[in-house]
Nucleic acid binder design. Sequence first.
DNA 1: TAGATTGTTAATCGATTAACAATC
DNA 2: TAGATTGTTAATCGATTAACAATC
Lengths: 211, 211
Amino acid sequence: MKTQGPISIATLKRLPLYLSYLKALPKDGPLNISATSIAMALDLNEVQVRKDLASVGDGGRPKIGYLTEELISDLEDCLGCRDCHDAALVGAGNLGKALLCCGEFGRYGMEIAVAFDESESNIGTTINNKHVLSADKLEELCSRMKIRIGIITVPDYAAQDVCDALVRAGVLAIWNFAPVKLKVPKGVVVLDEHIGSSLPVLLNHLAETIG
Amino acid sequence: MKTQGPISIATLKRLPLYLSYLKALPKDGPLNISATSIAMALDLNEVQVRKDLASVGDGGRPKIGYLTEELISDLEDCLGCRDCHDAALVGAGNLGKALLCCGEFGRYGMEIAVAFDESESNIGTTINNKHVLSADKLEELCSRMKIRIGIITVPDYAAQDVCDALVRAGVLAIWNFAPVKLKVPKGVVVLDEHIGSSLPVLLNHLAETIG
DNA sequence: TAGATTGTTAATCGATTAACAATC
DNA sequence: TAGATTGTTAATCGATTAACAATC
């Protein structure tokens, strides 16, 4: 693995694509793979692929390409699989459940360790082997477990309160699915995942197609 | 509403933010709102807000700002609320259910009209007043209902097949939640919504913070 | 050697931001 | 009038892409 300079956000977002593509390749296939073929498969520019790969590994060889296994391992290293962080999810509704059941986060260096919810019907249940606990215990437990990542999948009116509680518990990074701009103290990072905010892009395309 | 030139993708993605912010304002508040205050609230650059708003409406007035109601209506027009498209969702798992229950798509000009699934336990049920039907009926029904938008929330191995069926049924725009690069004929648009692909961005920030 | 492939340097493109003029 | 606010023009920035040299 390469000594990293900072990796651009755009590149960072593409790394999971490469990893899942490489992992899906047949095990008995060739040992090498070229940036050209990756680019073709993922519908990307091949120079872009090479630049991206250059930022995670120490390169391929002309005419031969990259060693597939090495590339996978470099990508995993870079995506942080080695030091996996525990996360707490708050709000075990449909979206929360979907995330709890999503197996691939481990690959990216995050594991949902515990979930919290307010509804009696959810509290005490287990989803994909993860316990759903009462939201009352959020602060104390996250603090004790030294959890640094919070995932917010509660309705928008509750999001800021949950966020505040997570911050008090020592959470430093928040993945926010509520369509709300969260206020956090300096040093805490928020990543907004507003499902639906790219919908206009799709509908705009459609409108043009239909004419 | 303004006669539109093409709106940039970045702008298009921000429009829902403005709309939901404006809608959340108290009804008995002031009639006007300034780009400055919107920018503050949403943590954006104020020139950017003005440019974005310029592309949907016919502008505000110096010293006064924009008429809140007019701005809301312009945003709604632009986001296509007037001609709402029917969509079909395929895959009524947790994520599918979350989307079926999400009320806000109507605002953006899309309504999920029907859902399809393979599992016996889901077929025949109703989620948020939307029928879940057998995947066998997908092609015929989507075709008959003249559905133009497909939402794919099935496991990745099934995604391409579902996509093909949707395309055969005449779907022109696909919102894809499976972590797979779909192959579609020309004229069909795919918008990939890879939840998790921005996770590395968050974890990278975290790693820097922790040091 | 010839050709496929890599990596780098420079050009392009799109989006953001800064500076400023216009206006109510 | 003075000041808040708008809109526009130009500068900056980051990311993508094209052209080319290096190499196995």
